[in-house]
């Protein structure tokens, strides 16, 4: 660490302190103590009220009920990103298995990955299935789930995953099943005489006496499956060995 770096860091921190002191004494700091009217509406109507989503978690009820179409198209954007990544990395020929020498990491890494993948699956399922009760939801749970194949790819190899049947194509099929289920859930209220993405009178708010908040729990479940499988496909694509690509592109050697 050079002397100049220390001086620059000190000057920077002093500048930040000075500016915030100046704002405190001279101008007004934007401090809010109230909720804006739109936020107040959501707070009042998330569990009680006529327009309720029957969910104690206000953010999820905004995401999948009040602003449901936004979230739907956001899922579409994510799907398009993965599709374009597939198009960028496409390999037409069936790729050969590259055999590398060496034994990989020590058994410490491998056995820990075995233990930790079980725990991560449990945690991700808890995040996704309680999206309508506590902070969390389908996207967050799916991202947590996708850590498992990533860890397995790093610790063992890509072929350990593909040998057990989880190839890129299977992941994309699972992802498509999740997305198609979401589309069907969107269209069900139309058949029942409601409007698009309607939640409450169409779907039951309690199943077996347990709060499920209408369609929110189903949306979270299918989003969980779709996002987990989509990220798995991305990681499988990223872990294709460089040699295969060099053979196909025919560009720079090594």
């Amino acid at each position: 660490m050079k002397r100049g770096h220390i001086i620059a860091l000190g000057v920077f921190i002093a500048l930040i302190l000075l500016v915030s002191l100046g704002i405190t004494f001279v101008g007004k700091v934007p401090m809010t103590t109230d909720v804006r009217p739109l936020g107040l509406f959501y707070l009042k109507n998330s569990y009680f009220g006529n327009y309720a989503a029957r969910s104690p978690e206000v953010v999820t009820s905004i995401l999948w009920d009040y602003r449901g179409l936004d979230t739907l198209f956001e899922t579409g954007v994510f799907f398009l990103a993965i599709i374009s990544a597939l198009a960028l990395f496409r390999i037409e020929k069936k790729e050969e298995k590259v055999k590398e020498k060496g034994e990989g990491f020590t058994f410490i890494v491998k056995d820990t990955v075995r233990i930790i993948s079980v725990l991560i699956v449990a945690v991700s399922a808890a995040i996704a299935l309680h999206g309508h009760l506590t902070p969390g939801g389908g996207f967050q749970g799916g991202s947590a789930l996708a850590v498992v194949p990533l860890l397995i790819i790093v610790a063992f190899s890509k072929y350990a995953l593909e040998g057990r049947g989880l190839t890129k194509d299977t992941a994309m099929i699972v992802r498509s099943i999740g997305l198609i289920s979401i589309i069907i859930l969107v269209l069900i209220p139309l058949a029942a005489g409601g409007y698009l993405m309607q939640n409450l009178p169409v779907f039951p708010s309690h199943i077996l006496g347990q709060l499920t908040s209408g369609s929110l729990v189903f949306y979270n479940l299918f989003e969980y499956i779709a996002v987990g499988a989509g990220f798995t496909a991305v990681f499988l694509l990223l872990s294709i060995p460089e040699k295969v690509f060099h053979k196909i592109i025919g560009g720079e050697k090594e």
Partner: peptide
């Protein structure tokens, strides 16, 4: 839920982070 989430995350980090450090040093 907040307490449970924080505690489980702490345990997970306690298991994962030495693995990562060991893998880095080994490699």
């Amino acid at each position: 839920p907040i307490a449970g989430m924080s505690f489980i995350t702490a345990i997970l980090i306690l298991i994962v982070s030495p693995t990562a450090t060991h893998a880095l040093a080994f490699a």
